[in-house]
């Protein structure tokens, strides 16, 4: 995959998170009629992901979480590439990152859907 395409993936996943997180929280607040003052004084980590998992919104949060994994994994790739100046080794790291994305992504999706609070 060309580096410009990877860059676009980084941008798009970042934008999906930046736009998606407020949308999910907004929809959750409306659906559960949580007062805004209460929301403003809630530990953000209680809302994400515990309250979402508790209320059965794990599948919806999965969309954001999967983006999170993709964005973070590409970040790991970029970070590791700063230490490698060998093309062959970079190719191996790229394959390992793809495997990592699949395993971590599946674990994230499974934990949000199948594991109860």
């Amino acid at each position: 995959m060309r580096e410009s395409v990877v860059r676009w993936v980084v941008h798009i996943t970042a934008l999906i998170m930046a736009i998606g997180i407020p949308i999910v929280i907004g929809a959750f607040v409306v659906a559960h009629r949580i007062p805004l003052m209460k929301l403003a004084f809630t530990n953000p980590l209680l809302l994400i992901p515990y309250a979402l998992v508790y209320a059965g919104w794990g599948e919806i949060w999965d969309i954001i979480a999967a983006n999170w994994v993709l964005h973070g994994s590409i970040g790991i790739r970029r970070f590791t590439n700063e230490f490698i100046n060998n093309k062959k080794l970079r190719r191996i790291v790229n394959i390992l990152i793809i495997i990592f994305i699949l395993i971590e992504g599946l674990a994230m999706v499974y934990s949000l859907i199948a594991v109860p609070l």
Partner: peptide
């Protein structure tokens, strides 16, 4: 210091 109990939120 924010709300840390789910029962208080939902």
């Amino acid at each position: 210091f924010g709300i840390a109990q789910i029962s208080q939120l939902i």
